[in-house]
Structures are given as C-alpha cells and as structure tokens.
C-alpha cells in the first residue's frame, strides 16, 4: 500500500472539485478555487456582458459572478438549494464567481486517469475517469477569456 501511494505521488496527482452543470459533471482544478459559497442575491449590472449575472459582495469585496451556462450557450440557470457560487482566484484579473448547479465531491486524479481533450469545445482541456464516471475538466482560462 505504502509503495503504491508513493508511486501515485510521483505520477502527479491533481485534485479536482466535481460540480454539476446541467447533466454533465465538470472538474475544476482546486488550485484555482478560493471559496465555495451558497447562492445569494446577485446584483445585476446593466449593460454588462450577457453571461455576467452581476456582482456579489463577499467579505467586503465585490466579486463579479458569471453564468457558466450562458457562457457555454446552455439553458439559463435555475437556482435551487443545491446551487453554489464557486469563487475562483486568478492572478491576472482577480476573483471571479461562477454558478454551478451542485457541488459533488473532491477527487484525486493521477495523470493516467486524465485523457487530454480532443478538440471538443475549448472550455475543456481533458476528461477525467473516476470510478466509472467521466468528468470534463474545465479550462479556467478559456472560461475567463472574453467572448463576443
């Protein structure tokens, strides 16, 4: 056992938070995640890009919140009790919240469990295989990128 886990470390394990958006499971690299908060009142910002739901205040900071559904051209969000805002921390542009339908779990994926994405949409950089589930791994920078 001990040997096994050592080997795994050498293979570089990445931790992902698995979230649900629609019927698909997405994984977000834990290094980008600052916080996960419950859904709260989002203040609409007029004339902002359509995929920005607005802004929230978190510990005295103003944080813009993006609808990942709108960004990926899915149906609009329906907020439930399970809805969460994931606060991402990005060095270049500061904090950003994205809305997900549900936060499921944290998984460890080693390199050989990840299949590099094969040109299917640019929001995903790989597919993780975990206990018979497939997890689409989000490319955070693509989500942050401006689209018109």
């Amino acid at each position: 056992m001990a040997n096994n886990s050592l080997e795994l470390i050498e293979k570089e394990i990445k931790q992902y938070i698995v979230v649900m958006v629609g019927s698909e499971q997405y994984g977000i690299d834990i290094r980008y995640i600052d916080n996960i908060v419950r859904m709260q009142k989002i203040t609409r910002v007029p004339k902002a890009q359509y995929y920005f739901k607005g802004i929230i205040s978190l510990r005295g900071e103003i944080i813009p919140v993006m609808s990942i559904r709108r960004k990926m051209n899915l149906d609009d969000d329906v907020f439930t009790n399970a809805s969460r805002i994931i606060i991402l921390k990005l060095e270049e542009k500061g904090s950003l919240g994205i809305i997900v339908d549900e936060v499921k779990e944290v998984v460890n994926l080693s390199e050989d469990e990840i299949e590099k994405a094969s040109g299917k949409g640019n929001f995903i950089n790989g597919i993780g295989k975990h206990e018979n589930d497939l997890i689409s791994l989000l490319e955070i920078h693509a989500i942050v990128e401006e689209t018109f």
Binding site: T43, V45, P46, K47, A48, Q49, F52, I55, S57, G60, E61, I62, I63, P64, M66, K93, G94, S95, L96, V144
Partner: peptide, 19 residues
C-alpha cells in the same frame, strides 16, 4: 466605492459598486 473588477465592461455608466 469598490471597483467592479476587470471582468465586467459596461460602457462606463457604472463607475463602481458599494456595499
């Protein structure tokens, strides 16, 4: 006055937000 950050651009009608 708090800044809206760098993500949202809105023709500058909104100069910031406050709590």
């Amino acid at each position: 006055i708090k800044s809206l950050g760098k993500y949202i651009n809105n023709n500058k009608i909104i100069s910031g937000a406050t709590i």
